[in-house]
Amino acid sequence: MTTIVTTPQVIERRQKGPGWGQVLLAAYVLLFFAFLLLPIAIVVLVSFSSSSFIVFPMPGFSTQWYYRIVEYRPFMQSLLVSVEIALLSALAGTVLGVPAAIWAVRANTNAAQVFTNVMLAPISVPAILLGFSLLYMLSALTLGVSFLSLLITHTVVAIPYISRTVLAVYRGIPADYEEAAAVLGASRAQIFFQITMPLIKPGIFAGALFSVLISLDNLPLSFFFGGASSSSLPVVMLSYMQNQFDPSIAAIATVQMLIAIVALGIVNAIYGVDKLTAA
């Protein structure tokens, strides 16, 4: 009989890696994002084409289309209108929507509940119906096709986008902070500006960002008000596309995307995008 002395062997078990199902799912998700980003990437690519037509393979790279859109007055003018409307309507939506949302959260009555639903409703009403109805309404008020009409129309939609995030953020903030400030002698105005506003600022910024992005691209709302001084960019782009099919559309679309990215960047620099998605 022999005895074999062995040191206890350490057997390392293979950890279970991701299964086939998981790998397939990951591949699918990759494909999904390719689908999501492909048409956007292709437009950016085309905007640098040296050809006057859209052909593949592209004959060469050039920035000529960016010069072309700067020279084409309707593009620049409507871009300016779009940016102005987006910013002003977000501002008006904030001034109107934020105090209303603050009241609605704390009031906790049936009236406040109904009001909240009304305030959020413009998101769910088809924009084309809203634009159409407002055109006749504003014409009756002799505002008709004008910058002010466009601003009013976009503000109707800005209110729900801004109040929606403010409602969500403010609901999560206990009344204790405001009460603590009140005991410390703060008036209602002081509480609002020194306590409430700083606490709900992320909600306001997130909502305003959404509102700006939606406004920049809201063709169904805007095209009813497409006059000389009040055509927004999507309206001009649509009419341009119906006549010509050249890469300048790609260039102006890319510029618009850059503006949106800058807006996001500004908000991100102030608050961080993670806070926005949390709201």
Partner: peptide, 19 residues
């Protein structure tokens, strides 16, 4: 990546498919 398309106009995305 899901929110990114929101930064582009619908016209841009439609144009992309056409291209």
């Amino acid at each position: 990546l899901l929110i990114a398309p929101l930064l582009t106009s619908i016209i841009m995305r439609t144009f992309g498919w056409t291209v």
